[in-house]
Amino acid sequence: MDRLKALIERVARSLRTGPGVRSPGANPNAPPLPMLRPCSWSVGGHAALMAFLLIGFATRIQTDEPAFGTIAIDGVVLDDEAVQREIQRLDELERAAVIEREQEVERLLEKIEEQQERQRQQEQELSALSSQAEQARQTLSEQQAEASRQLSAMQQQQQTERERLAQVERERQEEEERARAAEAERQAAEAERQRAEEQTRRLAEEAEAAQRQIEETERRRREAELAERMRREMAEERRNEAIESGQLDEYKARIRQRIESNWSPPGGIPKGLRWVVLLDILPGNEVDGIRFEAFNGTETDRRYIETAIRRSSPLPAPPIPELFERQMRLRYPPTEAGE
């Protein structure tokens, strides 16, 4: 029985180690490589088959043991010898069977180990291949990283170059700007200077002109005064001549006749009507304003007087301009004229 147990433990151990095979050199924490998985499944399958056979056998062995007990109870009636023989024979038989089975197990174990050995070899090959691939990948990765580093370095270098150029351009432009500003300032200053000069010159001219004008005005004023005085004196002379020669009376008679010919109240002049009108006369002898200074008639009477005056406008021109007056007084009736 101890051998059997030892066998079972062996099988169990091999089974435990079967699926747990890992590639040598791999990270213990990394998962098993996918390419190795079918192999471990086939190993597992064998192991399971083996375990099933072993367990079934062991179970049957266990159930046989109570049967022996029963036989032992029934064997009371048998003689010891026969029993001893029988036991011996059975032991013989059993032993032969066990041996055979052990041999069988031994063969199976050998096959399994053989299989495991092949598997290990394959795994080792795989591991070696994997290791090579990893090596290649690392190499590639390192190359890429190196290339990337080199690119970055180049870009960095270009950027730096561009910034340097921009800085140079800026400085150039600033320099130009400063130059332009300086030029503008200079021109403005020049213009200002010219303007100031012009202003000064003009002011001087104006002052001179003003002075001349003042003198001229004064001279003209004196001349005009003199002329006006002379004109007035001559005008008055002419005026008085006109008065004394009767021209004024003729002039007034013409105005009177003009007004009288235009004054036509439809019912004739109402008895007792009395009026005095002050007229404003424009230089063209046109009547501008009509103001009643006295009046005792009706609205109709007033209207016909106003109509007569407006119809008479412009009034006859004076024979000489000196007889023109800005105002004129008309009155009716004549009896009140000599007040």
């Binding site: 007004i259 009288e260 004054w263 036509s264 002049i269 007569a308 004129m328 009716y332």
Partner: peptide, 28 residues
């Protein structure tokens, strides 16, 4: 006349006084 000349500024405010003696009968 000289006296009148001396009074020129006053004479400038003179007015013509005209006396109306009659109206004219006519159809309006």
């Amino acid at each position: 006349c000289l006296a009148i000349l001396a009074l020129l500024p006053l004479a400038a405010s003179a007015q013509l006084d005209i006396v109306i003696t009659r109206s004219t009968q006519r159809a309006i």
